[in-house]
């Protein structure tokens, strides 16, 4: 099963969460591998600038998703189709506009991870 890079230290200040899929990785991992779930859109690999705008340190709550397919937590967080890894429960901020536009063009509804719109 695919798995994201698990940050070595929970305390690390540097932990960043992806604004789109809420996965938590260190900036190094983001730079090296990009986002394991949405790299296709975010294109953070090797681009620290992109990482700055597409991820944030401002998140609350950490989930260790061990079995995404069967976990209700993952389903509730809409990460059950994503790789195994550490995810933030709540991420503050919105994805950059270009990504949002791209999502729209694909007809994908963007759900911010800050729990502002719950339906």
């Amino acid at each position: 099963m695919a798995s994201a890079a698990i940050p070595p230290q929970a305390r690390a200040r540097q932990l960043r969460a992806c604004l789109l899929c809420s996965i938590i990785q260190t900036p190094v991992d983001f730079r090296r591998n990009g986002c394991p779930n949405c790299e296709e859109l975010m294109q953070m690999k090797g681009s620290p600038d992109r990482i700055q705008v597409c991820t944030t340190t401002y998140f609350d709550g950490i989930t260790a998703v061990i079995d995404p397919e069967h976990s209700w937590v993952a389903r509730w967080q809409r990460t059950s189709k994503y790789v195994r890894g550490m995810y933030a429960v709540r991420v503050k901020g919105r994805i950059p506009e270009d990504v949002e536009a791209e999502l729209e063009s694909r007809g994908i509804k963007y759900r911010p991870r800050d729990q502002t719109d719950q339906d």
């Binding site: 798995s3 698990i6 940050p7 230290q9 929970a10 709550g61 950490i62 989930t63 260790a64 998703v65 061990i66 079995d67 069967h70 976990s71 209700w72 937590v73 993952a74 195994r84 890894g85 550490m86 429960v89």
Partner: peptide, 25 residues
């Protein structure tokens, strides 16, 4: 939570894999 994650990965192919699905804080 991080330890649980690592533990789950470590033990995944052992005789006694963890059977928890997730953990959060």
């Amino acid at each position: 939570v991080f330890s649980l994650m690592r533990k789950a990965i470590d033990l995944e192919y052992s005789n006694h894999p963890l059977s928890i699905l997730s953990a959060f804080q």
